[in-house]
Design a protein around this nucleic acid. Structure first.
Lengths: 332, 332
DNA sequence: CCCGGCGGGCGAAACGATTCGCTCTACCAT
DNA sequence: ATGGTAGAGCGAATCGTTTCGCCCGCCGGG
């Protein structure tokens, strides 16, 4: 594999000049073409290791995700990768693992220049130390208590409001909600947003129809199950997370409940599902591509400038309500 | 950040010895603990750049995907990442781009030690040159004509047979198939597998009900649309790809066709969808986790041993047919 | 008692880029 | 003419490991 020395042999230039060329410095036109021709002839490519060794920059950012089984997270990778590749920056993917902090450690050991994370509680300490080491960090989807950082999140209150208002407009009075794991910042926001929207709409939220629980398909299914077998049931349900939505749909199918005649349903993040359910699912969606792009932009900004910022930017993006056929007037 | 020199200062050992320690060489017990204590005290971590510069190995493999919007591909990343991380190898993700070869070039410029790829035609030449440069390559999901390489693929003929046999057993005679893009090795296999299975079952495949086309939701929808408006229609349809399956379901929903009474449906790769459609979708699934693990194992083997193999291993994994409620006896 | 061999350790030379001072030229303004 | 300056190029040191060749001391066998 060719090196600067080979280029020097072909061009008669010094290493310093060649380096300058490869780093956007000013070089005589004449020399530029000489270098370019030599490089082409030799099939030369700069050696990232040597460069990184010297500059202490890897031009790589790590993306940390809790699990790799989630369309939303997928889109974050995709968007970030695309945006950063334009700057010649690559993306190291790491899915959270068993041992807390291991994933972050792994990324750091690979010398990533920054981290984009959809964090879990497990990662808090490791991320904290990363930040204190001066590694730029951008949180996505959720904030972590006690961890100051740049972030890009959904306007979860807005999301809740959109769902409630849509249902209220259709005449629903008694609206249930699957609000998931209340240890999660995001789910807390959605829950409080839901409650706020309800009272703002002049509706009462039945405490035991605002159901917290794990963010799993099984939990969503069980919870909706419980709603459906109760002697009296709500006329609508909002599922505040993808897994919960899937679980809810399964339970509804199992009970043979007619949507929206017997029960109106609003889902979350279910772009793909929405189109194949009959009727189409009304849902709240996140601008995933935008989120990823923003995250990439934020981290890129941190990379190029102000290394140890005293101010953090939290970008809040609006959710969008996509009406389908799963919301109708309340039954009977 | 600490270096060997700092360790040397604390332990009185030479750089060579310390290096030996970090590379699994034999070191006196006494010195071992000395190094470990020093490293702990300094928060030392070996510098991957320096190491890679010297050894010309990055301990990173690139995963190349056509697009990052596909659950199957996602699982490949996930599985490969998990398997390789156990060996301290990381995964660089790259989604194919506009300009052919750019993605591969990008990975090579990052000095990946090997590539796992779900290749497209666009990548053929670039992958070819990568291989000839001695970069280990494992193809996933599909082979590329004229590119000898290790690979792990689905037994597509089996997949087709499973679908046909299931439908034939339910009494279907006239079975349509969406076989997608026939430029793709995989889709060709599925098509020929379908035709073979049909004739083996003693059934005739209507040429214009074995429909090739782009692998998109829109195409699937349009094709099924066409089937449904025809004066006489098949009693069952097999969709040989995820997007086609989604498209088909949409078209079926739009026409208000009853499944399976009016039309039996077999999907592909639709684990998630299968559970929320009513009735549940019968489908063919790939052992995605296994595929990824096998790919990781293959590439790891190439990494550690025989650098320029004269033999290629193609691992073929069995598909699984998951019955749902979308297949019933043929209507009327 | 001596010799061969081996486990451990050491010094120094790579690996391939970047970067810090300098030097040299050419050109403009005074 | 002359000093000043900006543009371009150069040499050499440096980043943090690995690795090659060599040395030392110890042990057991002849």
């Amino acid at each position: 594999m060719a090196t600067y020395k080979d280029l020097r042999a072909r061009t008669g230039l010094s290493l310093a000049t060649i380096s300058k060329y490869y780093n956007g410095g000013n070089v005589l036109e004449e020399n530029r073409v000489a270098i370019e021709r030599a490089a082409l002839g030799l099939g030369y490519r700069v050696n990232g290791f040597a460069r990184s060794l010297r500059t202490k920059k890897s031009r790589t950012i790590g993306v940390l995700l809790p699990k790799l089984d989630n369309e939303f997270h997928l889109t974050v990778i995709a968007g970030a990768e695309a945006a950063l590749r334009l700057h010649g920056i690559s993306v190291l993917v790491c899915a959270g693992s068993d041992t807390p902090g291991a994933a972050v450690e792994f990324l750091l050991s690979k010398m990533v220049d920054g981290i984009i994370a959809v964090p879990t509680e497990h990662d808090r300490d490791a991320l904290q130390t990363a930040v204190s080491r001066g590694v730029p960090l951008v949180l996505v989807d959720r904030l972590l208590d006690g961890l100051a950082s740049d972030a890009v999140v959904l306007d979860n209150e807005l999301a809740a409001r959109q769902a409630v208002e849509h249902l209220a407009a259709a005449g629903h009075i008694r609206i249930a909600a699957l609000v998931g794991d209340q240890k999660s910042w995001t789910m807390r926001k959605r829950r409080s947003g839901f409650l706020a929207a309800m009272s703002h709409a002049g509706l009462a939220a039945h405490p035991n129809e605002v159901i917290a629980g794990p963010l799993t398909v099984a939990a969503g299914r069980a919870e909706v199950n419980r709603l459906l077998v109760a002697p009296s049931r709500p006329s609508a349900v909002v599922c505040f997370n993808y897994e919960l939505t899937v679980g809810a749909l399964i339970a509804i199918n199992e009970h043979g409940i007619a949507v929206p005649e017997e029960l109106s349903v609003v889902g979350f993040d279910s772009v793909e599902l929405a189109q194949v359910t009959r009727p189409r699912l009304s849902m709240i969606t996140q601008p995933t591509a935008q989120i990823a792009a923003q995250a990439a932009a934020l981290i890129y900004a941190r990379l190029s400038v102000d290394p140890s910022p005293r101010m953090h930017t939290v970008v809040t993006l609006a959710s969008e309500f996509v009406p389908g056929g799963s919301v109708g007037p309340p039954g009977e």
